[in-house]
Design a protein around this nucleic acid. Sequence first.
RNA 1: GGCCCCAUCGUCUAGUCAGGCCUAGGACACUGGGUUUUCAUCCCAGCAACGGGGGUUCAAAUCCCCCUGGGGUCACCA
Length: 487
Amino acid sequence: MPDGHSSSDRAPRVRIAPSPTGDPHVGTAYIALFNRAFANAEGGKFLLRIDDTDRSRYQADSEAQIFESLRWLGLSWDEGPDVGGECGPYRQSERLEIYRQKAEQLLESGAAYRCFCTPERMAELREQQKAAKQDPGYDGHCRDLPQSTIDERLSAGTTHIVRLRVPDTGQTIVHDELRDPIVFENERIDDQVLVKSDGFPTYHLANCVDDCAMGVTHVIRAEEWITSAPKHVLLYQALGEPLPKFFHVPLLRNADKSKISKRKNPVSLIWYRDQGYLPEALLNYLATLGWRSSDEREFFDYDFFQSNFRPADISLGGPVFDLEKLGWLNGMHIRALDPSDLRARLERDGFLSGVSEDGLRAIFPLVSERLHLLSDFVQLTSWYFGEPDEYNAEDLLVKKRTPEETRETLDQAEAAFAGFDAYDSESVEAFLEQCRVEWGLKKPHLFMPIRFALTGRRETPPVNDVIAVLGRERVVARLHAAKNKFC
RNA sequence: GGCCCCAUCGUCUAGUCAGGCCUAGGACACUGGGUUUUCAUCCCAGCAACGGGGGUUCAAAUCCCCCUGGGGUCACCA
């Protein structure tokens, strides 16, 4: 319960706090996965809080996309803007009054102070510090303004911000569950802005206040937050709140090891869905980036992950995101689906427009093991739902066979299948073999021309299956058309 | 650059906490082979790593130190 005394021996409460500033990010899913699995395994709660305190980067449709993407992945939340919960509201822009009160409290206790420095002065300061090769940071200009000056400026309505008063001596230690204690010298910690001049809180204030108010017990977040963690520790202390347990998870990386980015890697969850990645495959892959079960298996479902995952087991090397391996896992998961399930996925993700039920049932077995992405389905089955690919007479030629011989074979095949009526895989296979022996042909010399005639391509399911699924009418017509390529 | 984090095959990792069982295991990718009418699936085999240097120890991938390398962060963005 969010009573201000949450401790880790009670049911954990964890959260993710994405910003609605663009496409839903794969890194958000990565962190969400760890948080949700941990909370659910421990009988705790997983909360979703929208961190929309930056008005300039706010994108109206982003929030809905975050919801949709996370739901697509199955990473649902127990409390959040759209599902409610006892600690709402869960959108930070709707909690301004709370932050205002907390800021006031910090001001009164002296843990924070009002700063009237203009952006111009700050820019100038930065220039000077840069020129003097000093560390950039606030110089404390407004740290100890006399009360009379403050009152004067306030009554004049001078715009200002609120900063955290960081002690200039001593150290702040961040206890991260995955690492040794991290020691920061207070003199190197900047007086962090807590309230911006537009009255909105910064991430630092809003997050600490909310995590306290929402009873968050474990903060599992990206490693990029380590440097600001001491500021958060100081804030918790100033607020008089107990510290959560911190787990800073390594960042996903591009192939060059830099932090994963849009320019070097697909990062939008929408992209993964549109490409035909299965949610369980993406989740499975993300889970293997930094975690391994004791039996080292790499192919598993969410339930397995949830019941075996321990946050403390997360490894610390920054994992390179490898689409190649994700693709392998995706194929594995596709092959693990039963036909009706696979059909449902294809349908849901829009890869099945105008395809009949019967047609699907027939073609499924032939392509399921050839799919790496759901989107492959369209190309893999175009010869079945449509016409063969365009091809030339030369394409029908198997090495060392002349056009005359090939035409003869196609002609024989056309006649044979016109008079054949058992269009099932086994019967066709037997019939083909019978013809082959009768006509004295090597397998490739018979199968390849037929394959090409029926599909217009070299790589297809077994020819007998293609024939069976196409049926007499289409088989005969396509063999006929192929034969005529030589006229 | 300051501060902070990290460091096993090309990539994801097991092994590190409790040093010997590690001539370092698995997976992806790659290469070769098998099955086979093509492709795919599947099976078998191969390639390939403890970043470097000092310690401690009978013994170090494992513990300590230095170096190097990589990453993050230094906003009135999150």
